[in-house]
C-alpha cells in the first residue's frame, strides 16, 4: 500500500519533471482520442441514419376487397416462408377503415361520403419488411406472379434504394477512413509517449542506477514510468472528453437538420451513453499510455 502510494508519487513527479514534454505528449494524446471519438461518433450517426431510412422502407401489398381469409393466408404464408422477409403486418378492411376515420376525423365530408357506401371500399393490406434493403425487389418479384393476380390488386414499394446505397457507401467509407486515421493517430501517440518516457528515463539515469544499487525493488524502478504513461492517457482522455461534449451539444441539431431526420439525435445518444463513452475514452487513453511506457521501460530501464 505504502509502496503503491510512493510509486504513484514518483510517477506524478516524472510527469512534472519535464513539463513541456509532458504537455506535448498530453496534447497529442488529447488530439488522438478526440479524433478517434469524432470518427466513432460519425460512424454512429451514419449507422443511425441508415437504420432510420431502412425502417421507413416497406412493401405494401393491397389485396382485393373481396379476398377471402384463406386466400389472404395463402399470400401471408408464402411471404413468411421467404428468408428475406423480416416481418409482416396485416391490416384488415375494418382496421383500414378505422385508420381512415382517424386520419380524416376533421373532414366531415370525406367521412360521411365513405360511410354512405354500403360496403367498406377499403382494401386489406399486407405490409412487409425485409431484412435487407436489397431484398425488396426480390420479394416484390416473387409475389408479383399470376398465381396471386386474383388476390392482389396492387404492389406498392418504394425501396429508397438510391438513398440507402448512398448512405451505406458513405458509412463504409467513413469506417475505413476512420480505422485508418485511428491507426495512424494511435501509432503517433505511442511513438510520442514512448519517446517522452524514454527521455524521462534518460534524465533519471543516475537516480535509477542508485535505486538499483541500494536495493530498490524492480517495481519501484519500473512502475513510476508506467504511472507516467497512465497519466498521459488519463489527462488525454479527460481532455478529449471535455472538448467532445460541447462540440456534440453544438453540432447535434445541425446533423439532425442536415439528415432531415429528427430521430437522428446525436446529443441524445451521447447523453444516454455518456458513461460508456467516457469510460471507453479513458480505457483507450490508459491502454495507449501503458503500451507506450511498457515498451520504453522494457527497452531502456534494463540497460541502465
Amino acid at each position: 500500500m505504502i509502496n503503491l502510494l510512493r510509486i504513484l508519487k514518483f510517477g506524478v513527479k516524472n510527469f512534472f519533471r519535464n513539463i513541456w514534454l509532458s504537455t506535448a505528449a498530453t496534447s497529442i494524446m488529447i488530439l488522438t482520442i478526440f479524433t478517434v471519438s469524432v470518427l466513432v461518433m460519425l460512424n454512429l450517426v451514419g449507422a443511425m441514419a441508415v437504420e432510420t431510412v431502412k425502417e421507413k422502407v416497406d412493401i405494401s401489398i393491397y389485396l382485393q376487397p373481396d379476398a377471402t381469409d384463406s386466400q389472404i393466408n395463402q399470400v401471408k404464408n408464402k411471404l413468411l416462408s421467404l428468408p428475406e422477409v423480416k416481418s409482416i403486418d396485416y391490416t384488415s378492411k375494418d382496421e383500414a377503415l378505422k385508420e381512415f376515420q382517424r386520419e380524416h376525423k376533421e373532414n366531415d365530408l370525406i367521412l360521411s361520403s365513405i360511410l354512405e357506401l354500403d360496403e367498406n371500399p377499403l382494401q386489406p393490406t399486407l405490409t412487409v419488411k425485409a431484412r435487407y434493403p436489397e431484398d425488396y425487389a426480390v420479394i416484390a418479384d416473387i409475389i408479383n406472379v399470376d398465381e396471386y393476380k386474383t388476390i392482389i390488386s396492387k404492389i406498392d414499394f418504394d425501396d429508397n434504394k438510391e438513398v440507402i446505397n448512398r448512405l451505406t457507401d458513405l458509412t463504409g467509407t467513413l469506417r475505413r477512413v476512420g480505422i485508418g486515421l485511428s491507426a495512424i493517430f494511435g501509432l503517433v501517440v505511442v511513438l510520442v509517449v514512448y519517446n517522452t518516457i524514454r527521455l524521462t528515463i534518460y534524465t533519471q539515469k543516475y537516480e535509477i542506477r542508485i535505486m538499483k544499487l541500494v536495493g530498490a525493488t524492480n517495481n519501484f524502478v519500473r512502475l513510476p514510468f508506467i504511472v507516467e504513461g497512465i497519466i498521459y492517457g488519463l489527462v488525454g482522455s479527460i481532455g478529449a472528453f471535455a472538448i467532445l461534449y460541447p462540440l456534440v451539444e453544438y453540432f447535434s441539431p445541425f446533423v439532425s437538420n442536415f439528415l432531415g431526420e429528427q430521430s437522428v439525435d446525436m446529443l441524445a445518444y451521447f447523453s444516454e451513453h455518456i458513461a460508456v463513452i467516457f469510460l471507453m475514452e479513458i480505457a483507450a487513453g490508459v491502454l495507449l499510455g501503458v503500451v507506450s511506457s511498457l515498451l520504453a521501460v522494457r527497452r531502456y530501464v534494463k540497460s541502465i
Partner: peptide
C-alpha cells in the same frame, strides 16, 4: 551495504533524504 567510490549521493536530496531513499525505494514503512 555498499559505499561507492564516487559516493553516488543525490544532489537534490538532503542527507536525511539520501539515507531514507534507500529504504523508500525498497518498500520500507514510514
Amino acid at each position: 551495504g555498499v559505499v561507492f567510490q564516487d559516493y553516488k549521493l543525490l544532489t537534490r536530496k538532503t542527507v536525511y533524504e539520501n539515507v531514507a531513499y534507500a529504504m523508500v525505494v525498497s518498500g520500507q514503512s514510514i
